[in-house]
Computed example of a mutant assay.
Amino acid sequence: MSPIRLFCDLDGRIGLRAFWLGSAVVALTLFALQRILPQLTDPQTARTALAFANAFALFPWVALAAKRATDRGSSSLFGILLICAIVLPDHLRLYMPFGWRPSLEAISTIAWVVAFIDLGLMPSAKDEPAEAMVAVEASSR
């Protein structure tokens, strides 16, 4: 799969390796920008550019999660909603009363755990039916 399609297309399926490599590329790019931009420009321009980079990085992560969720047998919408549940509570915290902040952090943490386990650790759904079929045949004997 081409890098453009990997990071910009919501259709298709990717395995664990492509998901982790793609996520690492996006994370390392953001990390490099956070280290380089403040040294190249004034602080206000660096903050603006980093905010734009963080917002722009959401789409590649959404594309990776949507493809991985499809590979797991779920809807691509599941992957998109997981990324939204991870990112949005942090932005909503500014507009919510102080009492809601722990709930927003809990939502984000739960979404991280679900995304890590379901998208990052579980095997592809195409592998599971064959294994399940072998188990059913063994139990019927």
Rank of each mutant, 00 (worst) to 15 (best):
residue 81 L to K: 00
residue 56 F to A: 15
residue 41 T to L: 09
residue 55 A to V: 09
residue 87 V to I: 08
residue 48 T to E: 05
residue 54 N to Y: 09
residue 132 A to Q: 15
residue 63 A to E: 05
residue 13 R to M: 11
residue 137 E to S: 14
residue 20 W to F: 11
residue 71 D to V: 01
residue 25 V to S: 06
residue 47 R to W: 04
residue 75 S to T: 13
residue 57 A to W: 04
residue 139 S to C: 08
residue 41 T to D: 04
residue 28 L to Q: 06
residue 20 W to P: 04
residue 100 W to Y: 11
residue 91 H to S: 06
residue 12 G to M: 07
residue 44 Q to N: 07
residue 107 I to C: 09
residue 76 S to N: 01
residue 133 M to D: 02
residue 53 A to V: 08
residue 102 P to K: 04
residue 1 M to K: 11
residue 117 I to M: 11
residue 78 F to P: 00
residue 31 F to Y: 11
residue 47 R to L: 11
residue 76 S to V: 00
residue 94 L to H: 02
residue 107 I to L: 15
residue 48 T to P: 00
residue 10 L to Y: 14
residue 69 A to G: 03
residue 113 V to Y: 00
residue 82 L to Q: 06
residue 31 F to E: 07
residue 53 A to F: 05
residue 71 D to P: 01
residue 91 H to V: 01
residue 44 Q to V: 13
residue 105 E to S: 06
residue 57 A to Q: 01
residue 2 S to H: 14
residue 126 K to T: 10
residue 56 F to R: 00
residue 97 P to Q: 08
residue 28 L to P: 02
residue 70 T to P: 00
residue 88 L to G: 01
residue 17 R to F: 13
residue 39 Q to L: 15
residue 76 S to Y: 00
residue 51 A to E: 06
residue 37 L to D: 05
residue 17 R to H: 09
residue 128 E to S: 07
residue 141 R to A: 12
residue 48 T to K: 02
residue 107 I to E: 03
residue 126 K to D: 13
residue 8 C to L: 15
residue 44 Q to S: 12
residue 57 A to R: 03
residue 75 S to Q: 01
residue 77 L to W: 07
residue 90 D to C: 00
residue 99 G to N: 08
residue 2 S to F: 11
residue 128 E to F: 11
residue 16 L to R: 15
residue 127 D to G: 02
residue 129 P to E: 08
residue 19 F to Y: 15
